[in-house]
Every structure is written in C-alpha cells, then in structure tokens.
Amino acid sequence: MINVKEYIESGILEDYLSGNVSEQERREVDCLSKIYPEIRTELDSLSDTIERFAFANKVAAPAALKSKIMAQLTFADDEPETQVEQLVEEEEDNVPVLPLNSRGNSFQWGWVAAASVAALVGSVVYFNARLDTLSTTVAQQQTEIKVQTTQIAQLNDANNQFVTLKGVEKSPSSSVRVVWNPKTQEVQLSVLSLPTPSADKQYQLWALVEGKPVDLGVFDVSTAFQKMKTTGQAEAFAVTLEKKGGNPTPHLEELYVMGKVAG
C-alpha cells in the first residue's frame, strides 16, 4: 500500500498540474488518482484553485475575436455544401457503430452455427470409426482434467486473494478475476468479460506495487485460469490493451479493468 497522505504531501500533484513531471510520474498520478479517491479529491481541489486563480485574472478579449474564431470552425448546422470535412468526420464517427450492429445479425450466425453443428456431427461419425484415435483424445482430456484439478486445488488455498477487476469508463461491462497468493506469489487470471482485441493486440496484466505498474504478462481472452508472472506485492491489479507480446510500461488510455487488493 502506498501512503496516500505522504504521496499527497510530496508535492507530486502540484508538479503534475504544472507539467513538471516525467512521463512515468504522469502515468502514476493518472493511475493512482483512479484508485484512491483521496488523491482524486486533492487533485480536483488543486485544479479548482488554479481555475479560480485564472478567473480572478480574467481579461475581456476583444468582441470581434469570437466571430473570427467561429469562422474557422465547423458546426453541425452549417450549410452542407461547405461541409466536406465534416462529412468525412461524421463517416469516421459512424464506423465504430456498424460492427456492433452487425453482431446482432442472428441470421448469419444461424448459418455459422448450423455449419458448426454439421461439422461436429461429421467429426463424431469419423472418430467413431477410429476408436484408437478417440481413446487418445480421452487420454488427453484426462490429462487436462488433472491439470484443472491441480488448478482448482491451488485456487482453494486459504492464502488466496480473489480480486475482481471491474471495467473502467472505457469498457464498463468488462471484468477479470485475479487470484493472487501472496505467500507463493502465484498469480492466476480468468477473463469474465473483455472485448475481443484485434489480432495485433493483447491484453496485459499489471500489478501496482508502491504506486508503480509491474508487468505480469500478456494473456488471451479465455475463461480458463491462466498462470501469469509472479509477484510478492500488489496494491491493485489492472489490465491494459497493448501490442501483441506486451509493453514494458502500460498505456493508461488503454486501461480496461482495475481492482484494488482488499486490506
């Protein structure tokens, strides 16, 4: 746990607001202010002070300036023929909406499902004719069950901390379960819900240790428990979307879920 009071008193929040921080420190403040409400409140209060100071020093800008500025801007109610740029922008705006709608198209999915069922039936018939292959499959499944049983046994360890990482504003419905054993330092993760990333991206788990993000490795979207890198300390866990293979430091603007360790 970081000492919130000491952190606030260190002056880093003032330096953050004046831009006198390194990139790493900036991310740290962004991240910690999301986790600790006291830090958020302090930051808002200091911003508010700067804002009031600016309002105390306001100077009326020449009236003609406003129309000069407005002439350079695009408005929604402008005449359409002058709006090539805006139309392009609107088209771009629409793009992210379409894939979501197309998901709701159950007709296509019906065919996909039917094709999958047909393929499955076909393969069952095929495997029936080749019992030896089938028994190999059974053996594989038994091994898998053994692995899972071991995992379940590990999950039952009394030292385990279960942390549910909840979606932040970027993806409020997302959630990830992290099981962390501070004694063995083992970290396991199971995705409850996360958007499927594009092929060149992967989610990455971070532990927050003394306010600094520590890489715990990348993972794929799967409900099965996945073993991550170990850590002996963690105040919180967070998941960001990074390039495939992960990054050395997290991109906070790609923060999806986050959760504090209890106590």
Binding site: E51, A54, F55, N57, K58, V59, A60, A61, L65, K66
Partner: peptide, 8 residues
C-alpha cells in the same frame, strides 16, 4: 471561459 484563458 474565453476571458479567463485570455487573461492567462
């Protein structure tokens, strides 16, 4: 906000 920003 313009007057506050202009002052700054």
């Amino acid at each position: 906000y313009s007057d506050a920003l202009y002052g700054v």
